[in-house]
């Protein structure tokens, strides 16, 4: 058993989980919206990227530049068509609506792509790795760069939210949407931007996931759960908390898998439940946010 290696791999996977979680965190933070179709949007994007690559023969990395703008548009479209109608209403309708959306997306994917798993082939790059500490620790070049990109995305996002005019409007809307409107903030466009960010980041995460592992139409719910656990472990309302939450979840899973392959998910879930019991506001959460 190689604990050190497990931890390193866990950290790298954690970056991906954080990227899944970012969108969930942003849409909850800004509009108090829990989108159960979040994971399915990631899987859908990976399928679209895969279709693009098969049709054009181009690299999945190029597909990113096609899929991401598309997913931003999808995000805005969904916000206008669906989510604007459930923001601020009884949360049960929110959950039912997004759950319905999730079932619909999953089964559209199933119908289009059948149950066969797919993968995005990134060629040699996927096999290259750095070897540390003799040959005990192997760091894949792709997981490493994926981690770096994830951190970069979080840095950019936190600068955007912390320093820009629209970012301030995000936070003001989160605090008190009615008063934000009175200050001249058009909260519908703020919601649209927030949701575009949510879908774009989760789409990127979905594509990154597909570059390393196989994915299939039914994967969305599991991805949603990883995203959710990362958010709660890290604490609501803190992007850096989300990164740490993702890393903790990633490490728990790789260590669990070291002990017994069947325990990978279970240990991850249990760590989540323990955090929930011991520190319900999450590790970096501020207590005023529920």
């Amino acid at each position: 058993m190689n604990w050190f290696n497990a931890i390193i791999q866990g950290v790298l996977v954690g970056g991906l989980y954080a990227m899944y979680a970012t969108g969930l965190s942003v849409s909850f933070g800004v509009m108090r919206l829990v989108n159960l179709a979040h994971g399915d949007l990631a899987v859908g994007s990976a399928f679209i990227a895969s279709t693009f690559c098969l049709a054009t023969g181009l690299s999945p990395f190029l597909a990113i530049f096609v899929v991401l703008p598309l997913s931003a548009l999808v995000g805005i479209g969904l916000q206008v068509a669906v989510f604007n109608r459930v923001v601020g209403v009884d949360p049960s309708y929110q959950i039912v609506a997004t759950f319905g959306l999730s079932i619909a997306i999953q089964n559209v994917l199933l119908q289009q792509y059948a149950a066969n798993p797919r993968a995005l082939n990134i060629g040699e790059f996927g096999n290259q790795s750095l070897k540390l500490v003799g040959d005990d620790v192997v760091i894949g070049l792709f997981p490493l760069s994926r981690f770096v990109v994830a951190v970069l995305v979080l840095v950019l996002l936190s600068l955007f939210i912390g320093r820009t005019r629209i970012g301030r409007a995000f936070r003001a809307t989160s605090d008190d949407p009615d008063i934000a409107r009175l200050m001249g903030v058009n909260i519908r466009s703020i919601y649209a931007v927030a949701f575009a960010i949510a879908v774009t980041t989760v789409a990127l995460a979905g594509i990154f996931n597909g570059m390393q592992t196989q994915f299939s139409a039914a994967d969305g719910p599991a991805l949603l759960i990883y995203a959710f656990e990362s958010v709660i472990i890290g604490g609501l309302g803190s992007l850096w908390g989300t990164l740490c939450g993702g890393i903790i979840l990633g490490i728990s899973q790789t260590i669990g898998a070291e002990i017994d392959p069947g325990w990978k998910q279970l240990i991850g879930h249990l760590v989540f439940l323990i955090v929930l019991l011991v520190r319900p506001m999450g590790i970096f959460g501020k207590d005023e946010l529920r």
Binding site: R165, R168, A169, R171, A172, S174, D175, D176, I179, A180, M183, G184, V185, E288
Partner: peptide
């Protein structure tokens, strides 16, 4: 806006 600083609250005031 509770989670914003004093300065940021004023900035939102000038949003228009």
């Amino acid at each position: 806006f509770r989670s914003l600083t004093v300065d940021e609250n004023l900035s939102i005031g000038a949003y228009s």
